[in-house]
């Protein structure tokens, strides 16, 4: 591999030419980046925990995507004759208080839980990073923004989410908004603290020596340096949002009732836990597994994207 690359460099530079053939350059670049990609993939797939996490997350995503195909029943269909039926070949995870198929409800619940988790992770990562970077570059805005973040962080996050839900009303969209607001302060803090560290590095000073403007430094040079902890944090927020959403739904302040989310199912099952423990067990198990998978994956991603970590 290396040998062929070396010889192609010689070709490019044969006879000490300064002009380059673009075709050859492109091919060379492709091969080089492919080589690096291979190293990276090996680094990621050599990490067993990360691969395990990836498998879990992919499975859950697969189940959520194909919920309509996989589920044997309509998750909302009532069947009062078959209430609280135990697990059987007909009802894999049994049935709930109104005779709905728990398996189907858990599959559809995965859709809602993942949507909430993913959207909240991405949105809070995006806004948190923007706010954090802006704060790190502007001392005046920093004071104001960080005091707001401190204020939001002073309230326990679940309580804050419940309050926001009470104000906004129970709705899937509002769950996402509430959880995003709850998670932004942490994200902004993280982005800001990382940006402040990077800002003091010699290479930022060197860039200033090159005449780079403030905007260019912040967005083009500091941002890519802080992105890896942000991405890792996004996966953790993804995981914690699934839990918080479940908690909100469990308390009745989350996704409105007929829609199956893992928290909703838990909530409905809690009254009959001694007669029908399966209603609580399966959504709980799925929540725990998904969160575990996301956390393992988060650690793996960190090692994967940071070019200097080995």
């Amino acid at each position: 591999m290396t040998k062929t690359i070396d010889s192609s460099i010689e070709n490019v530079y044969a006879g000490d030419r300064t002009e380059m053939k673009n075709e050859e350059l492109k091919q060379l670049r492709k091969r080089l980046s492919k080589e690096q990609q291979e190293i990276k993939y090996r680094r990621f797939f050599g990490n067993k925990a990360a691969v395990f996490g990836l498998i879990i997350v992919c499975t859950v995503i697969f189940l959520a995507l194909f919920a309509p195909v996989i589920s044997p029943y309509d998750p909302l269909e009532l069947d009062t004759v078959n209430r609280l039926k135990s697990m059987s070949t007909e009802h894999l995870f049994g049935t709930d208080t109104m005779g709905r198929d728990v398996f189907s409800r858990v599959m559809y619940g995965a859709r809602i839980s993942l949507t909430v988790g993913f959207t909240v992770g991405i949105l809070s990562g995006f806004f948190g990073m923007g706010i954090g970077l802006y704060a790190s570059a502007n001392a005046y805005a920093d004071n104001i923004l960080m005091r707001i973040c401190d204020g939001l962080k002073a309230i326990p996050s679940t309580l804050l989410a419940i309050t926001l839900m009470a104000v906004l009303g129970a709705d899937l969209k509002n769950v996402i908004i509430a959880l995003t607001v709850v998670n932004i302060p942490n994200m902004a803090r993280l982005a800001r603290s990382r940006a402040l560290v990077i800002r003091e590095q010699t290479y930022i000073e060197a860039l200033r020596c090159l005449g780079a403007g403030r905007l260019r430094i912040v967005w083009r040079h500091i941002a890519p340096n802080i992105i890896s902890p942000i991405i890792v944090q996004v996966t953790f927020v993804f995981a914690s949002s699934i839990i918080t959403e479940a908690a909100l739904s469990f308390l009745g302040a989350g996704v409105p009732v007929p829609l199956p989310s893992w928290g909703n199912i838990l909530n409905e099952g809690k009254g009959v836990i001694y007669q029908a423990w399966w209603i609580v067990l399966f959504p709980g198990l799925f929540t725990a597994l998904t969160v575990l998978g996301l956390n393992l994956l988060g650690d793996g991603i960190r090692d994967f994207i940071d070019p200097s970590s080995k």
């Binding site: 290479y203 060197a206 860039l207 020596c209 005449g211 780079a212 040079h221 340096n225």
Partner: peptide
Amino acid sequence: RGEKISMIFQDALSSLNPV
């Protein structure tokens, strides 16, 4: 800066952006 007068620093590793 950079165009008319430029500067090189002591520690070359930390003077280059790692990403």
